[in-house]
Write a protein that binds this DNA or RNA. Structure first.
Lengths: 126, 126
DNA sequence: TATGCAAATGATATTGTATATTATTTAAAT
DNA sequence: ATTTAAATAATATACAATATCATTTGCATA
C-alpha cells in the first residue's frame, strides 16, 4: 500500500465523520464539511473516504435501497437501522459467539467475520 | 397497494431469478433473460424487480461497494458473501434467538428483524 | 365479440452517485 | 531553494437506476 499523506482535508474529513454517531452518506458529510470549509471539493471527500476505508481506518457500509454510508471506526460492532428516519446507530452488544465456526464446519467456507443489522424503528420515530 | 397484473414479463423475470442460487445483479439477470427473450426491456426488468421487492415477494439486498442484488425469496435466512468471487450464498441455519429482544430492552428500539451476513472465502475460491 | 379503460411495456431521456482526468498546488527531502 | 511525488479543486465522464411517454396488452362490461 502506498503511504498516504495526512493532509488537512483528509484530517477534516475523518474528524467530521467521527463526530457523527449515525452513519452519514457522502452527500450529508460533504454538506457539513462545506459549511466550515467551502474550498474542499466533493471529489476530495469521495476520494479520501474511499482511501480511508481501503486502509481499514473507517468502514464503508451498505444499506438496501440507499447510497453508500460510512462508519467512522473500524472496530467491529453491530448496527441498528431505523426504517423511518434511515439513520443507522451503533450497538454496544457482545459478539454472538460460535456462529462463524458453525458456518465453517457446515459449509466449508472460510469465515473472516460476520455483520448483524437490526431493522426497525428508533425511539424518536415511534 | 394497487393490484399488479401477472404479465408474461413479470413471470419470466421472477422465474429466472428463482433459478439462481446466488443473488444476481440486475445486469446479470437481464443478460440471462435477454438470451431467451430478447424483446424484454431492461426498464421492465428494473421495474418488476422493484415492484416484486415492494410486494415482499423477493428481497433486495445491499452489498458494500457493489450494485443492488436480488434474492428470489422472502423467507428470512442468513447469507454468506465470498470476497473473491463476490457471489452471495444462502445459508440454512437456525435463527439466532433472543438478540432482537436484547436490543429492544437495552435501547428501546422497536426491532422488526435482523440480518446476518458472513464474509469470507467460499470453497471454490480458496 | 366488440368497446372502453387502466395498467404494463419498450424505448428513450433524465437523474444522481461515483469515478476519471488534468492542470495546479502542496509538502517533504535533499 | 530546488526537485519530485502525491494530493487537491474543478470538471468531465461513466454508469446504475428512475422517470417519461407513446404504444400495447389484457381484463371487464356490454
Amino acid at each position: 500500500m502506498s503511504l498516504k499523506r495526512n493532509t488537512i482535508q483528509r484530517q477534516i474529513i475523518l474528524d467530521t465523520l467521527k463526530r457523527f454517531n449515525t452513519h452519514p452518506s457522502v452527500d450529508v458529510l460533504y454538506t457539513v464539511i462545506h459549511k466550515s470549509h467551502p474550498t474542499i471539493s466533493k471529489a476530495t471527500v469521495y476520494r479520501n473516504l474511499r482511501q480511508l476505508a481501503g486502509e481499514g481506518i473507517i468502514t464503508q457500509m451498505a444499506v438496501s435501497d440507499d447510497v453508500a454510508r460510512y462508519d467512522g471506526t473500524s472496530e467491529p460492532h453491530y448496527h441498528f437501522s431505523c426504517k423511518v428516519c434511515n439513520k443507522i446507530f451503533d450497538l454496544d452488544m457482545d459478539c454472538v459467539e460460535g456462529i462463524d465456526d458453525q458456518i465453517r464446519s457446515k459449509y466449508g467456507y472460510k469465515v473472516d467475520k460476520h455483520e448483524i443489522l437490526f431493522v426497525g424503528t428508533c425511539q424518536d420515530c415511534e
